[in-house]
Simulated assay, not measured.
Amino acid sequence: MNIQLFNDDCINVLKDLPEKSIDLIFADPPYNLSGENYLTTQNGKIAKLYKGDWDIIQDIDAFNFKWISECIRVLSDTGTIWVSGTLHNHPSVGVTLKKLGLWIINDIIWFKPNATPLLANNRLAPATELIWLASKTKKYYFNYELAKQLNGGKQMKNLWIINAEKHKTIHKTEKPESLLQRIILLGSQEGKTVLDPFLGSGTTGVVAKRLHRNFIGIEIDKKYFEIASKRIIDEVVAQELKFT
């Protein structure tokens, strides 16, 4: 399988990709959570939430419109785009998808039964993330029968109960491999091309390689790009050793 990794701003790379060349896009963009107004827990204590400078966006609507527009240009007519988020960026992404004329297929709720407890006593403990699923046309690829099979023979709902996993790297927003495996299996076929414009720690690339998809990953942060590259290369080596 072909793998291309770029340490760059995703806008720069996307502009050079051929139109309609991508079959599935999974994007885990900045949630814009970092800053003075948001808190988290660290070692059982309340702390200011800071994921990195990349998570501080001055105009979230303009930011989302820019990168999503480029993604839509490279997405095939039968492809799908999956965008994860929380209440902090999810409304902006949804409005942007509609403005760009996309067909909203689902809003998927990822429920984490083992989510981190909340120390504050003035609101409910967050235990979900949200995933927009959209396409350019109504003739998109979606493996409905496999979804039923993965759900014990019953129609799969848009509520996905998947535990958060212990992070394999130091990246603070790393997604579970089990989540990406479900998305890639349902939204693409072997030999097709998967794109992740915010590669992070490389989970999408690792799973795409494992499932025999071509992959393009873009990460702006050099430290995380090196971490992601190593993870993906290690997976490539493991797959090659497996079949020798």
Rank of each mutant, 00 (worst) to 15 (best):
F215K: 04
A127F: 10
K166P: 07
D23Y: 02
F63E: 05
N43G: 06
K242M: 14
D61H: 11
E174Q: 10
P126N: 05
H212V: 13
I227F: 08
P176L: 02
L102D: 08
G44D: 04
F225I: 04
I109P: 02
L186R: 03
L159V: 13
T116R: 15
W103H: 15
L102I: 02
Y50Q: 08
P29F: 00
A134I: 03
N89R: 09
L130M: 14
F63R: 06
I105H: 03
A27R: 05
Q58E: 15
K98V: 15
V206T: 07
I104L: 11
T116Y: 11
G35F: 00
A120K: 14
E240P: 07
I25W: 02
L159P: 05
E36S: 15
A164N: 13
Y141R: 05
F198S: 01
I46Y: 05
L199D: 04
Y224L: 06
D77M: 12
G191N: 08
D196N: 02
W160P: 04
L100T: 04
N121G: 09
I104H: 05
L49D: 12
D9I: 03
V95N: 14
T203P: 06
R210T: 14
L186W: 00
K20F: 09
F198H: 04
A147F: 00
D9V: 01
V236N: 13
N2V: 09
K45P: 06
K148M: 05
Q239I: 14
L146W: 08
N121Q: 14
T193V: 08
N7D: 08
A125G: 11
K20V: 08
Y140E: 00
I81N: 02
K99M: 13
K242C: 10
P113D: 01
H171N: 01
D196E: 07
K168D: 11
I227M: 07
Y144A: 11
W132L: 01
I170H: 15
L17K: 02
K157S: 12
L195P: 01
L119T: 10
